[in-house]
């Protein structure tokens, strides 16, 4: 029974985490047709920036409760700056290029950013456990559970809903949706595609950075943490259908529970479990659950 509760709660927590790291990837792909491998590096940078900031923050003896505000602020700034720097600095010169070429480009960016992280932060591990410990435990069904982990679920839902609102309700968001539907017509209608691309990329990057930032207190922040993220996030977005935001949510739940089940029942197969789910989904729907299948024209 405890195990069941643990699986349910961990599944929820993993799902939230996977959603945070995957939704930016799928958003960027959906709008820009760029499968951004550097997303993993953005995540890592988010974790490092958070760790450094919190280190300074606690060092200065500032109130512990406001540390979360600092985390959020830093993630926002880092996400926007990083996203715009990459988009303006590199990607905008390559719009309209082949999708596989863009994978190569973002792979190169990942390599560059990965080493940049090592040059800036060194190869030592960073630990900032304080925010994780701050909220303590709550007992659910007889199982003590970290409140922080539950708050991550809340954060994922809030950010997910915010993103959905932005896309559906705001002018900019609706224009973004129009670009996804048909970029040529959108451009012809006078929608500023360039601005939408820049905004989308910044938002997507922000999600990766937030994902890293909220994870930092739970882990040892070390070089290489970004790799696993891109591999997992890719599985999530493929399950849901590349470019689909509801798909990312569903995919995150699938993958999150697959991971929770395997962590509790067969820990060696953690990564395997997620990919087994992905393979099963692809066997039924070759391009994911929510993928729009475009027929070949002759």
């Amino acid at each position: 029974m405890l195990k069941f509760t643990a699986i349910m709660l961990d599944g929820l927590n993993y799902s939230a985490w996977l959603f945070l790291v995957a939704v930016g990837l799928t958003l960027i792909y959906g709008v820009m047709r760029i499968l951004n491998i550097a997303h993993g590096a953005f995540y890592a940078i988010g974790a490092y920036v958070c760790a450094s900031t919190l280190g300074l923050y606690y060092g200065a003896g500032l109130p512990e409760a406001l540390a979360f505000l600092a985390m959020g602020l830093v993630a926002l700034i880092a996400g926007v700056v990083l996203g715009l720097a990459v988009e303006r600095g590199v990607l905008r010169f390559l719009y309209g290029k082949d999708e596989v070429l863009m994978v190569l480009v973002t792979y190169a960016l990942f390599l560059i950013l990965g080493d940049a992280v090592k040059l800036i932060w060194g190869v030592e591990s960073y630990f900032v456990y304080q925010p994780y410990a701050y909220f303590g435990f709550v007992e659910i069904g007889g199982l003590p559970y970290q409140v922080y982990d539950l708050l991550m679920v809340v954060l994922a839902v809030v950010l997910g809903v915010a993103l959905w609102f932005w896309l559906e309700r705001s002018r900019m968001g609706r224009m973004t949706t129009a670009v996804v539907a048909d970029r040529e017509i959108s451009a012809a209608m006078g929608i500023n595609v360039k601005r939408i691309f820049a905004t989308t990329f910044a938002i997507g990057t922000f999600f990766a950075v937030v994902g890293g930032a909220v994870t930092a207190p739970k882990i040892a922040v070390t070089p290489g943490i970004g790799v696993e993220v891109i591999i997992l996030a890719f599985a999530v977005v493929v399950i849901g259908g590349l470019g689909s935001i509801p798909g990312a949510a569903i995919g995150a739940v699938f993958a999150g529970y697959a991971r929770a089940l395997s962590v509790h029942l067969a820990p060696e197969f953690e990564l395997f479990a997620i990919y087994a789910v992905m393979a099963a989904v692809l066997a039924v729907r070759p391009h994911g659950l929510f993928a729009k299948v475009s027929g070949r024209k002759i």
């Binding site: 290029k97 082949d98 480009v105 190169a108 390599l111 560059i112 080493d115």
Partner: peptide, 28 residues
């Protein structure tokens, strides 16, 4: 030792940016 991947990435990026019609057209 900590910049090898950066060098590799930069060369890749340069090759793609500077030779857009060259290398890639071989497979695209």
């Amino acid at each position: 030792p900590n910049a090898w991947q950066m060098i590799l990435g930069a060369v890749m990026l340069a090759a793609i940016l500077l030779l857009p019609g060259g290398l890639w057209s071989l497979i695209d």
